[in-house]
């Protein structure tokens, strides 16, 4: 499985490399097909305002998915992301309740999220345990602490006419929600970090072959720590923006984010075996999930069928992606000079 995935990721550059399609073409086609199917049957779905609404829906989960790409790339999963998001949002909102400037609160929320990520990272590296095990515990720790500090009630910051709330709730050109813009900017930045920075190369090296990476002088522990801190900071950013956008944070918000986030990343084409990742794929994966959710409502699908249909369409989307990848690999092999 891993070898196959790696061969897909490192397919030899054929003479046709200049017109090579992106790795994410499979999920992009899957998304386009879904949107076409829904749009043909329900033209209102393709209304640009609705499409922008769907993009807005992806924002908060999508940000977490972007961070999760880095973790899957080093063969780790952080189960506590939903509660880091929640706890950071609660922390941000409580600072606002204390009448601290909302912009400072938002920055503090991001730092707080990074701090929770750091705690995960320190536990993972010092205990030499997989992140999935450590975050199974911190999942409940963060949830519990969040409930303690918010007294199991929603935190509603005052002064929602301040510049922070106005800026986060605003729509660029009157249609594009600011959080969606931040999400897209974050995705582009993280794409560049993963594929164009030393840190990104280290992440892929550690995920691809940790022993070889260690021999090459890359500290596995440091990369894992940095990646978990990055994940925490992104959760903090998402949480701080959520408070600005929705004007409140509820005690249980984020509780079931993790499954959706991991699903989006995997649908997007990031292999569970590590060594590679695609931020663009994760964005498309998040969009696929939201398009399915929206499509179910546009088709008026009965609630009792909707769960099955969601799963079936996800399987179809992933199948389509795999077929496209298989075709690409086969073509690349054919194009490879024999001998």
């Amino acid at each position: 499985m891993k070898d196959e995935t790696m061969s897909q990721q490192t397919a030899p550059r054929a003479p046709e490399a200049r017109r090579r399609l992106p790795d994410e073409i499979g999920v992009i086609v899957a998304l386009a097909v879904m949107m076409t199917v829904i749009g043909v049957a329900r033209p209102r779905f393709l209304n640009p305002l609705n499409l922008l609404t769907i993009l807005g829906h992806t924002t908060f989960l999508g940000m977490l998915a972007v961070g999760m790409v880095f973790l899957l790339a080093i063969r780790e999963i952080d189960l506590s992301v939903g509660w880091i998001f929640n706890f950071s949002a609660v922390f941000t909102a409580l600072l606002m309740v204390a009448h601290i400037d909302p912009w400072i609160c938002a920055v503090a929320g991001v730092i707080f999220g990074a701090g929770l990520g750091l705690l995960n990272g320190v536990l993972v590296t010092t205990l030499r345990l997989p992140a999935i095990i450590v975050t199974l515990g911190t999942f409940s720790m963060f949830q519990g602490l969040s409930l303690v500090v918010n007294n199991s009630r929603a935190v509603v910051p005052p002064g929602q006419d301040s510049s922070y709330f106005n800026a986060i709730s605003a729509k660029l050109f009157g249609v594009l929600p600011v959080p969606a813009v931040v999400f897209l900017v974050l995705a582009v930045a993280m794409h560049l970090v993963l594929h164009r920075s030393r840190f990104g190369y280290r992440v892929q090296a550690v995920g691809s072959n940790p022993e070889a990476a260690e021999l090459a002088g890359i500290s596995n522990a440091m990369v894992r720590l940095q990646t978990l801190v990055l994940m925490g900071a992104i959760c903090g950013l998402s949480g701080a923006m959520y408070v600005g956008f929705r004007g409140a944070i509820d005690p249980n918000e984020g509780s079931d984010f993790v499954l959706m986030v991991v699903a989006a990343v995997i649908i997007g084409g990031t292999p569970l075996s590590g060594g590679a990742g695609t931020v663009i794929g994760a964005v498309i994966g998040t969009l696929i999930i939201q398009v399915i959710s929206s499509g179910l409502i546009f088709f008026g699908i009965d609630a009792t069928w909707s769960t099955f249909v969601t799963g079936a369409v996800i399987v179809l989307a992933v199948s389509l992606d795999q077929i496209v990848k298989y075709q690409r690999t086969r073509r690349a092999r054919r194009a490879r000079p024999s001998g």
Partner: peptide, 23 residues
Amino acid sequence: SSRFYRAALMAGTAAIVMGAAAS
């Protein structure tokens, strides 16, 4: 062309799955 045939097949199946359950 093979890729697009498969894509069309998937699109058709997706339409059937979603459409069949639609009221």
